[in-house]
């Protein structure tokens, strides 16, 4: 992969993000890389799609129905797999992720040291003021997921729910057909780990959530944990399909 010809797709899944999508696109477009921004409008009922199109800086894929984050991200993988991008970056449309961190995120893939890179809020990076703060129960949940991931796939990823990720071509081709549906992040790590992909976690700064709420907040979190752990276990019980 020569430095000049690395084509990057930045996949931005967006569901009813009319308020923040233009800013997210402007942020991601500011990078000095050869990047194509791919907004996957997940059946939004607001103006997300037209606002994203009006910026003239993003490819907009309109899903006719709401598929959820997994289905939306997978649409981006399918697009990038066909368009032949070298690296795919998954970048949330809600303003949590910082485009300036993308260079750091893709560095291990450029150096061919990783197939998949996870932008982590937990891996130490000095005494960064952007260090991730969270509630105790949420931290506990994330530790539990990390433990499950280690037991089931033999990989230690501390921030397994982070949706700020980079993938190389091989990982994208693999996930285009097999990305999990509902709460895909931790499950995808088990799938990738068990299929021999090299996972690397790098520290990144994330913003506090702008608007909206985490999809895993409140009373639903117990249900989320059970569902995700079950999905991880089931993924581990399936035979590896690659390598």
């Amino acid at each position: 992969m020569s430095e000049q010809h690395v084509r990057i797709a930045v996949i931005i899944p967006a569901f009813n993000e009319a308020a923040s999508i233009a800013e997210t696109i402007a942020d991601a477009a500011s990078l000095a890389l050869d990047q194509e921004l791919v907004v996957v409008n997940d059946g939004s009922r607001d103006a997300t799609s037209s606002i994203a199109r009006a910026t003239g800086r993003a490819t907009v894929l309109d899903l006719p129905v709401n598929l959820g984050i997994g289905g939306a991200v997978q649409t981006g993988f399918r697009y990038a797999a066909r368009a032949g991008h070298d690296i795919v970056v998954q970048f949330d449309g809600d303003g949590q992720h910082v485009a300036a961190e993308i260079e750091r995120l893709i560095a291990p893939i450029r150096a061919q040291q990783a197939d998949v890179v996870i932008g982590s809020r937990f891996v130490e990076r000095g005494s960064s003021p952007g260090a991730f703060r969270s509630t105790r129960s949420r931290r506990l949940g994330i530790r539990l997921l990390a433990l499950a991931n280690w037991l089931l796939a033999g990989r230690w990823v501390r921030d397994s729910t982070s949706g700020f990720r980079a993938y190389n071509r091989e990982a994208v081709a693999f996930l285009a057909d097999r990305y999990p549906a509902d709460y895909p992040e931790p499950e995808a790590l088990v799938l990738l780990g068990r299929n021999g992909f090299r996972l690397v976690e790098v520290p990144v700064v994330m913003r506090e959530r702008q608007g909206g709420r985490s999809s895993i907040a409140g009373l639903r979190s117990a249900h989320y944990m059970i569902k995700v752990l079950l999905a991880m276990l089931m993924t581990a019980l399936r035979p590896a399909v690659r390598r």
């Binding site: 129905v65 598929l67 066909r82």
Partner: peptide, 8 residues
């Protein structure tokens, strides 16, 4: 649905 979005 995904194929439809890509085809569009």
């Amino acid at each position: 649905a995904q194929e439809l979005a890509l085809l569009r």
